[in-house]
C-alpha cells in the first residue's frame, strides 16, 4: 500500500471549452510529466474519449478512469466515474437518451470533436454538450449508481453550476460518494477531493488528491472514498 496521486476531473478537446491541444495523447503526456498516477477524463455529458484515453494511458503507465461531468436539469455539475467499459457504454446510452439537443455554434462555444489516436477527427458533435440534460440531480445520481459508478458533485464551492449555487445546500438524502472542492475544505462530513478541472494542458494536476491505495484503479478508489481495508484519502492539494 502506498500513496498515489490522482486528478479525476480533466476535459479533453471534445468539451467545447476544452482547448484544442487537449488531445487524449497530450493529456496523458502532461499527466505523466506532472507525476500523476491516475486521471479521469470527464467531458461534459459524454464519455466518447474514454476508451482511447484508457488505451493511451495503459501504454504510458497511467491509470485512466472513464468519467463524465454531467449537467442535471437544475444545472448542477457532477462527476460520474464509471467502473468499466461495459458500464461506460451503457451510461453513454443513458446520456444520449436524456440529451436536450441544445443548438451548438462552434464559433461561440468552441469545437466538439472526437478524435482517434493519430488525432484524425472521427466525429463532430453538433449539439451543445454541456447543456442541461432532461434529468434531475436525483435521476443523475440514481443512474450513476445503477451503473456502479461513483457520484461526486463537482466544484461545490464555485458560484456557478455547483450543487451549492443551484440548490442552496446539499440535500441530506442524496447518496454522495465524495464532494469535489476547489478552495478551502468545507465543514461537511462527506469525503473531500480536489481535482484540476483542467481545460488547458498547463492546468492538468494543478489540484489533485493523494490516496493510499494498493494500486491505482476504480475499485481501489472506491475503497479509499469509503476508508475501507486500509485505503483512504491522504490529502488534497490546492
Amino acid at each position: 500500500m502506498k500513496p498515489f496521486r490522482a486528478d479525476l476531473h480533466i476535459h479533453s478537446l471534445l468539451s467545447p471549452c476544452g482547448s484544442l491541444d487537449m488531445s487524449p495523447a497530450a493529456i496523458i503526456r502532461h499527466a505523466a510529466a506532472r507525476g500523476l498516477d491516475m486521471i479521469a477524463v470527464s467531458d461534459h455529458n459524454t464519455t466518447l474519449h474514454c476508451e482511447l484515453m484508457v488505451t493511451l494511458g495503459r501504454e504510458a503507465g497511467i491509470t485512466v478512469l472513464r468519467a463524465a461531468e454531467v449537467t442535471s436539469s437544475e444545472e448542477v455539475h457532477s462527476l460520474v466515474i464509471l467502473p468499466d467499459s461495459e458500464a461506460r457504454v451503457s451510461f453513454q446510452a443513458w446520456l444520449e437518451q436524456h440529451c436536450s439537443f441544445a443548438p451548438h455554434d462552434p464559433k461561440i462555444f468552441g469545437d466538439q470533436v472526437v478524435i482517434d489516436r493519430d488525432e484524425n477527427i472521427i466525429t463532430e458533435i453538433n449539439h451543445f454538450l454541456p447543456a442541461a440534460l432532461n434529468a434531475t440531480l436525483d435521476e443523475v445520481e440514481a443512474a450513476a449508481h445503477r451503473h456502479g459508478a461513483l457520484f461526486i458533485p463537482a466544484h461545490i464551492d464555485r458560484p456557478s453550476f455547483s450543487i451549492t449555487s443551484q440548490l442552496g445546500f446539499i440535500p441530506e438524502d442524496l447518496y454522495i460518494d465524495a464532494i469535489e472542492v476547489v478552495g478551502a475544505a468545507p465543514d461537511l462530513l462527506y469525503p473531500i477531493i480536489r481535482n484540476s478541472d483542467a481545460h488547458i494542458p498547463e492546468h492538468i494536476g494543478r489540484r489533485y488528491t493523494t490516496y493510499m491505495l494498493d494500486h491505482p484503479s476504480f475499485t481501489e478508489l472506491s475503497l479509499a472514498l469509503r476508508s475501507e481495508d486500509g485505503r483512504h484519502i491522504i490529502s488534497s492539494q490546492r
Partner: peptide, 8 residues
Amino acid sequence: SDLLSDVM
C-alpha cells in the same frame, strides 16, 4: 431567481 443560493 433560479439560483437557490441567491434566494437564500
